[in-house]
Design a binder for these strands. Structure first.
Lengths: 144, 144
DNA sequence: TATTTTTGCTTGTAAAACAAAAGTAATAAA
DNA sequence: TTTATTACTTTTGTTTTACAAGCAAAAATA
């Protein structure tokens, strides 16, 4: 299991898993945009190719960052959900968002500001909890 | 300046800059390992190829995440330092470290735990300030 | 049964990463 | 003052990965 890691640094090892062009984008789409099916991801603004999406979802499932389930009355559509491990990336994603909001606009003027950013700026810890709780509630609801 | 960004999402746009295999590794090496010259980075455990290193440093300089300076009495060695914008990534790096510390060990048993992790767990905000202040002090010292 | 939707694979092409080596300029050593 | 070393930077050829477009199987729907 120790293969494919560049070295023994925890940060570098985390980046060996989520440090690529697409992985955190997919996790963001699940966490903040409510996406959960292959089609949801395929139709996103980011326009990920289906083969890349397929391989990333497989990898994330192997690392237990997401699960792949099916609805009881639909045997075709796969439902991809963040695990606790995946939800543990919420603070990282929130910090990246805050950094981007402050620092990227000068290079990318048409960037959109999520309404939740103001909430996060006011009370970071509470907002993170709320985002995670909201995700869990929503996915419970959708499963039944 | 709006080119090369996949879409208007702040998170995706941040990842268009730092979302690759090497960029956050280089920033980590500067922030937490005191690396500041081309040679420092070249000799790291992660073993980045020199041409990739060169292109990433150039990109980071263009985005004003790092600066490239020279010491007064050495016209050869370039000193790469994090700007305020670059130091703004400290919370992201810290959150990634905490996530890794909790979640990656099961896939990578020989991962090393930085002694600063315990400090960060106890008081996150204060630790981040300390890490940034320490970086600034150290680099001021090295410049004179 | 025929059609559509969803998922994800295949194929050919383009881009990026990579290792190794060569190039360049500053500095140090003989 | 030649020679060697150091610190980067670029080049070269190879491998890997990304990508778009199209294809196909399974299941749902008409």
């Amino acid at each position: 299991m120790n293969n494919n890691f560049r070295c023994n640094c925890p940060i570098t090892s985390a980046l060996d898993i989520v440090g690529d062009k697409w992985t955190l984008v997919i996790i963001k789409q699940m966490l903040l945009e409510g996406k959960k099916t292959f089609k949801d991801f395929s139709e996103s603004d980011e326009a990920i190719a289906s083969n890349i999406l397929s391989s990333r979802l497989k990898m994330l499932e192997q690392f237990k960052i997401i699960t792949k389930e099916k609805l009881t009355h639909n045997k075709k559509t796969n439902i991809y959900l963040l695990t606790e491990k995946g939800l543990g990336l919420t603070p990282t994603i929130i910090e990246l968002t805050l950094w981007s909001d402050l620092n990227i606009r000068e290079h990318h003027s048409s960037i959109i500001s999520d309404s939740r950013i103001e909430m996060v700026k006011k009370n970071k810890e509470e907002s993170i909890k709320m985002i995670v709780e909201f995700y869990k509630q929503k996915t419970d609801y959708n499963k039944t």
